[in-house]
Structures are given as structure tokens and as C-alpha cells.
Computed example of a mutant assay.
Amino acid sequence: MILTGRSRLAGVLGWPVGHSRSPRLHNHWLERYGIDGAYVPLPVRPESFASAVTALANLSFLGANVTVPHKEAALRVCDEVTSSARRIGAVNTLFFHDERILGDNTDAYGFIQNLFEGCPKWKATSGPAVILGAGGAARALCVALMDAGAPEILIANRTRTRAEKLADSLSQDSGGERLRIVEWGHWSDMLSGANLLVNATSLGMSGQPPLDIDLSALPGTALVNDIVYAPLETDLLLRARERGNWVVDGLGMLLHQAVPGFTGWFERTPEVDEELRHFVLEG
């Protein structure tokens, strides 16, 4: 990659940020499409986040992605945010235009696009969705499924009060009346009739405890998704596949959520394909 004085610049803000695969992902696209630009990691301490964003805008960066622990702080520094970011309560993508900071959250988009790509026959409207977890990722999933028309969304979390807080915060949202809290561990009641099961917890991730779940009540027609991608095929996905369910891993969510940012910064809509999947996984 050779940069010029006209190179278009973007990056990812996080603390730490060395784990992020976003630089590998975006720079692959830049090279693929022959774009004069660069996407760089930007490690920023939480107390310096607001000033760092202002500095990037003043340095003619086109924008940046935002990862932990800055997503909620990013919402506060924006002059304008999208409806998706406001509803999710966090920003993961920044755009700098005419001295204004615009914020978006593309996690809901990335999640639903990953399901549609991984299982084209699946429809959100076909039945209830079950979400395990009640953190920021689960919130984005709820927004995505409400917008996609899921008739009911069941939320289960090991700490029930967190699930209740999530549901309450979305209760005034369009479709929020479709949210229902279910008890963690009541697998039969939770999974019977489900159209989708999503693990949005860290359980089953490399280095974390396993997700101990009984899938016997899950219909064979249900789609199962795990939003983590380390490992790429979690024990949940392996067991679901063995019993005949459709499964979609979590890598596609990472790849698809990057598309709107890249498109806005570099004026080219990138393709998510197998070559990209393999390249990002190798990093």
C-alpha cells in the first residue's frame, strides 16, 4: 500500500484496540478496490476519548469505528445520531462532515444481514426469537428483530434484573410490546416453538465457561446463531448442527456491520464474501 497526500483516512478507537480485526478487514477492502486510503488502530484512554474524536475530525479523518469501552461515550460526543444508534444507546461508527460529528450504530444491520446471508430461507416473521444475554449486543439484536418483524422476542439472562432493564428501556420503542422476559434455565418453556435462538453472552467463547443449555425442545426448523466467532463454531452451533438445525456463526456480523462505515468513508460499497472471511480469520 502506497499512500499519497490525498489518502482517505479512517480508523478504530478502543482501549485496548490491539485485538480488533477491523484494520485487517478495512485495509483488505482498500487494497482489493485500489483505493488510496488507510484504516488505522487508534488506542485511546477513556478520559481522552472526546478530545481524540475532535482531533481526528480536525486532522481530516473521514470517520472511525468505535469499540469497547467507548460506544456509549461516542453517543455523547455526536452532533447528530441515527435512529438506530439512539435506540441502541451506543455508537460504533462515526462520520465527520463539515465540522459535525455524525454517529451510527451498525450492529443491528450487521446481525440481521448475517442471518439473511447465512440462511436465505429464514424469515424473522415466522416465529418467536430467543435471545440469551442482556448486554449491549443483546440490545442491538432486539432492535434488529423488532424492525425485521419478529412476532415475539424472549430475553433470558443469568441476572434477571438486567433482562428486565433491557426490556423496560425498549418498551416505548416500536415493537417493544413484543419483548418478554423468561427465566434462565427454563429451556423447555423458552425454546418450544422458537424460530431463532441467539447466544449474545460470552458463554462458549474461548477462555469462558461453556453454555450449558438443553436444546431438546428447540424445533428442528429453528435457526441458531452465536454472535461470538472465537471459536468460529462454538459448542452451541456444533450441537445445533448435529441435531439438524440451521446454524450461522458470528463472523458475518462483524463483516457486515463494517459495510456502512466503509461505504461512507471511501465511497465504495464493499463485498462480503468467502475470500474476506478467510482473510480476516487468518489475522
Rank of each mutant, 00 (worst) to 15 (best):
I2A: 15
L3I: 13
T4A: 11
T4M: 12
V12M: 09
H19E: 05
P23H: 04
L25D: 02
H26W: 01
N27P: 09
L30Q: 12
Y33V: 07
Y33E: 02
Y33G: 00
I35G: 00
G37Y: 01
Y39P: 12
V40T: 08
V40Y: 12
V40G: 09
V44T: 11
F49Y: 07
A52E: 07
A55F: 02
A57K: 02
S60V: 05
F61C: 04
L62D: 01
A74N: 03
R76H: 13
R76P: 10
C78G: 06
E80L: 06
V81I: 06
T82S: 15
R86V: 03
A90F: 00
A90W: 05
N92M: 03
L94N: 02
H97E: 15
E99I: 01
I101H: 05
L102S: 06
G103E: 01
D107H: 06
A108V: 02
A108T: 05
G110Y: 11
G110E: 06
N114C: 13
N114I: 02
F116C: 09
E117Y: 13
E117M: 12
G118S: 00
W122S: 03
K123I: 07
S126C: 10
P128F: 07
V130N: 06
G133H: 07
A134E: 09
A134C: 08
G136H: 03
A137N: 08
A138H: 05
R139P: 06
A144K: 01
M146A: 12
M146H: 06
A148D: 04
G149W: 00
A150E: 07
I153Q: 11
L154S: 11
L154R: 15
N157K: 04
T159E: 05
T161E: 14
R162K: 15
R162W: 08
A167I: 15
L170Q: 06
S171K: 15
S174P: 14
R178K: 10
L179N: 01
W187I: 08
S188Y: 03
D189E: 10
S192V: 05
G193F: 00
L196G: 08
L197H: 12
L197D: 03
V198L: 00
V198W: 00
S202L: 08
P210C: 04
D214A: 05
S216F: 01
G220C: 06
T221E: 03
V228G: 15
P231F: 02
L232V: 15
E233W: 11
G244W: 03
N245V: 04
G250Y: 02
L251A: 08
L251S: 12
L254Y: 13
L255C: 08
G264W: 05
F266Q: 05
E267N: 15
E267H: 15
E275D: 15
H278K: 10
V280S: 07
L281Q: 13
G283E: 14
